[in-house]
């Protein structure tokens, strides 16, 4: 017991994820940024992708390095299969290994279904669903071969319940949940845990721009009576990436203040 205790204290002091290498997609701001920073705060070296916000990405990389962790910011569109292959190879070359994949990159482009264009549908599905597949596809051979790894996909409570004006987004996020469960089955015997987090409405730049009405309607649903913060989602992702969650796989953890039960 005391031996085990000392070991625990040593691990805790060194960080839950000491020297693991993580790849987070879409981490120049919002929830992705919080995830990248929290993984680094717990000892991981962090590579991440961004699409357009190079300055913000450089800032996130700087904050990771301030924690004495290695950072690698890579420009990529997650919807591209080839770029996912390239990014994962760059992470392995640049940071030497890959232990954790967090599929966070996502977008919404809302319209009621009778007004939704084909472009709106295709783009959201490409980024949110195919993007998640692209990175799992690129990382899976590595994780399978090493016989360990963690994959966490960021979905949404709207992928569970549906949402007015979000047929494309809800379908994509629901697809991510089915993808999570399937890959959990396929990689389980290779000791790779595959889970998802499903945030409710979170205080992000995207949401700060939303009409006041959207916030008010969400607040009326949230039993804890407030929006969540990106950090509160990140803490749960870190937990799922840690040894503490090693018997958890195929699950969807809602981080929504009780917004959808």
């Amino acid at each position: 017991m005391s031996e085990q205790f000392r070991e625990r204290v040593a691990t805790a002091a060194a960080g839950l994820l000491q020297d693991k290498v993580a790849l987070v997609t879409g981490a120049s701001m919002g929830i992705g940024e919080a995830i990248a920073l929290d993984l680094a705060a717990n000892g991981a070296h962090v590579a991440f992708t961004y699409r357009r916000h190079a300055e913000e990405a450089a800032c996130v990389a700087g904050r990771i390095e301030q924690r004495s962790r290695k950072a690698l910011a890579l420009q990529a569109d997650v919807a591209s299969f080839e770029e996912a292959q390239r990014v994962v190879a760059q992470v392995r070359d640049g940071l030497g290994q890959l232990d954790i994949l967090v599929n966070n990159a996502g977008m919404n482009w809302d319209a009621v279904v009778w007004k939704m264009t084909e472009e709106q549908w295709d783009q959201v599905i490409s980024v949110d669903l195919k993007g998640t597949f692209n990175y799992i596809r690129a990382a899976a051979p590595i994780l399978k071969e090493q016989g360990s790894g963690k994959i966490v996909n960021v979905t949404s409570i709207n992928g569970l319940r549906g949402k007015f004006g979000q047929s494309n987004y809800s379908a994509a996020k629901g697809g991510v949940i089915a993808l999570t469960k399937t890959v959990a089955r396929e990689l389980g015997r290779s000791n790779v845990n595959v889970n998802a987090v499903a945030p409710g409405l979170i205080e992000t730049p995207m949401v700060k721009q939303a009409p006041e009405q959207v916030r008010e309607m969400a607040l009326a649903e949230i039993v804890l009576g407030r929006l969540g913060t990106p950090e509160e989602v990140a803490w749960v992702v870190t937990f799922l990436c840690s040894a503490a969650a090693r018997h958890i796989t195929g699950q969807v953890i809602q981080v929504d203040g009780g917004q959808y039960m």
Binding site: E232, W235, I248, Q251
Partner: peptide, 14 residues
């Protein structure tokens, strides 16, 4: 877990 309530967390190896 400050923002998690009303949830069921399965710890069941899938």
């Amino acid at each position: 877990a400050a923002y998690i309530t009303g949830q069921v967390l399965f710890v069941d190896g899938g």
